[in-house]
Design a protein around this nucleic acid. Structure first.
Lengths: 343, 343
DNA sequence: TTGAAAGCGCTAACAG
DNA sequence: CTGTTAGCGCTTTCAA
């Protein structure tokens, strides 16, 4: 099946390819009658100009690359959705690149996106959430960002000066802890996450700050890390419950961990929130799916994606934009937290 | 910032562009020393050939388009993951197109994917799950499939002869109902889904077949439809519980609905699975997140995606493949179903 | 208004 | 082994 080109259209319409191009792009006046004629032929063959050839000239592909760590974590599909809707409204299509948080894979994708000449890149997870990211990894990203507009979502790279869109995790974490304290809890634990990634670090820091502010004891043995999964939340909570003393409330690094924590607590015969208050983070769909529904912190996930693309679009068009856009998180109180009651 | 091309490399290495191209693609013998020389210059500038220009010639873009209805439904990220891993292994990148099940949007994306000259298309949801799809919509897809290899996942289009990869929903549904019956349940309801889409239709049909086979009464008023959401599952279950008589078991069109059903049942004071058995479908992560964990049917979601890309890859290379690839679903018994007990 | 022709960056004959 | 050159399909001067 021969692919049809502007030449075929031109020939059949008895005009030059230039004219075909003109009616295609409405880039110069064309006599009404010839325009009609050309359009007729175009319609007849359902001709669609080859975007590759166009891009080769225009230096724009209408493609955005989005690198994220794990699309099966319900936080990310929501970001994607926000990004995609905004992208579509502006004529972009999105390459979704699941890195698995693997730095090698991130590099691979960065490279692929570069050779495919995407118009912009959205970077989430992996190296941009590392407390200490190697200079080489930073460099790779910084150099690419000089050729392709890029936005880091919910992360950063040391002295890279890269554009960022983020939800203020410290603020969100403080709200969560504050909420627990206001409910009368004094024995509060923190669980989840790996200890070398910023989503964990920011929250632990905020947690300690709030505890200190309220003259509450911080027990290092009640700050437990592992990873961001449900499984991990379950194991960590189990560990907590095996101690002589146990907290009356737990703040989890994310909803996954919180779900695990809830499951562990219930399996150990505790009632939630009666005997144990638990708060998660991210406000993923999981939180309303759970019984009891999870008290958590929303990051305006959809907006995170939407605004990022909006800004990226502006960058692509050479507009200056703020280096940092911060979205305010918000506490969502549901059923997994309750006032402290003495045991 | 000037983008650098093969010409720049050629000039600096004192060779012709053809030679540069040769070392880039290893497409013809090049003297070792000149190869070294060229590679040095390439490395020096971190040169990456423009994929657009290459694709223009090779007629291959290394891009696959994936149209699906809702990436926030945890079933799809898993399919995507399987697809992406296989894609990556074969050198493809994936355009993720969230159609929202909107036919107009599907058409838009189909058109975009065509002009972007993707090498292949994976189609899920929306029109390919309609019991009656309009001839125009069918046509649009069929015509495109003549130009671009395409695979329909878990769906079909009337007499289109399109390639399909699917999990056998009828078989899966039968397993689910069989399981309930073997547990001694006789009063079984079916809830969920919209009634004009195949995921619902196939299951209802299988449900009725099994009931009939076992001489069990099918009550039409216990076959309730709405949509595929948690909310809908909740509302439908509530409706069921408000009747004079109530079933002892419910088979739900998917996990979302099942979660809603569980929530409704618990809110109505029922214990699960003691007083009400519930089974879902899809085996999404939700099912292990719930308390009690959900008995459900797995569709081999990851494999669905992986094998689809594998087949698509073969089609792209002109190999003949089977029209239909069916994956066997499997019942996963967890905690939401139990033997029938008289009330 | 329209056409001829020169590229966009790369690959692939075809000579040498 | 290596260079020259003609495209891939489209847009865009430059003339007419």
């Amino acid at each position: 099946m021969k692919t049809i080109t502007v030449y075929d259209i031109a020939k059949e319409a008895n005009v030059s390819v230039a004219t075909v191009s003109r009616v295609l792009n409405d880039t110069a006046p064309v006599k009404h009658s010839t325009r009609e004629k050309v359009n007729a032929v175009i319609k007849k063959y359902q001709f669609q100009p080859n975007a590759l050839a166009r891009s080769l000239i225009s230096k724009a592909t209408g493609m955005i690359g989005m690198i994220l760590p794990d699309i099966t974590n319900p936080f990310f599909p929501e970001v994607f959705k926000g990004a995609e809707n905004e992208a579509r409204a502006n004529g972009y299509t999105i390459f979704l690149c699941n890195s698995g948080g693997d730095y090698r894979r991130e590099s691979d994708y960065l490279s692929v996106l570069k050779e495919k000449r995407v118009d912009g890149i959205l970077f989430l997870g992996g190296r941009i959430n590392l407390s200490r990211c190697s200079p080489e990894m930073v460099n790779e990203v910084v150099e690419l960002s000089q050729q392709i507009p890029m936005i880091l979502i919910n992360g950063s790279l040391p002295k890279s000066g890269l554009h960022r869109v983020m939800a203020d995790e410290a603020a969100g974490a403080e709200m969560a802890v504050q909420h627990l304290i206001e409910l009368g809890h004094q024995e509060i634990a923190f669980i989840g996450g790996v200890d070398y990634m910023t989503p964990t670090i920011h929250k632990v820091k905020a947690f300690k700050k709030k505890m200190l502010e309220n003259r509450l004891r911080i027990r290092e043995e009640w700050i437990l890390h592992q990873d961001f999964s449900v499984k991990s939340g379950k194991e960590l909570m189990t560990r907590l419950l095996q101690g002589h003393e146990r907290p009356s409330a737990v703040f989890c690094v994310n909803d996954f961990n919180a779900v695990g924590a809830v499951k562990a607590a219930i399996e150990h015969g505790l009632t939630i929130p009666g005997e144990m208050s638990i708060v998660g983070y991210d406000d993923t769909p999981l939180s309303t799916t759970l019984i009891p529904e999870l008290t958590t912190v929303t990051q305006q996930t959809y907006e995170l994606g939407r605004q990022s693309v909006q800004l990226l679009h502006q960058m692509i068009h050479g507009e200056k934009i703020k280096k940092i856009t911060a979205l305010q998180p918000q506490l969502v109180v549901r059923q997994s937290t309750a006032p402290y009651r003495k045991r």
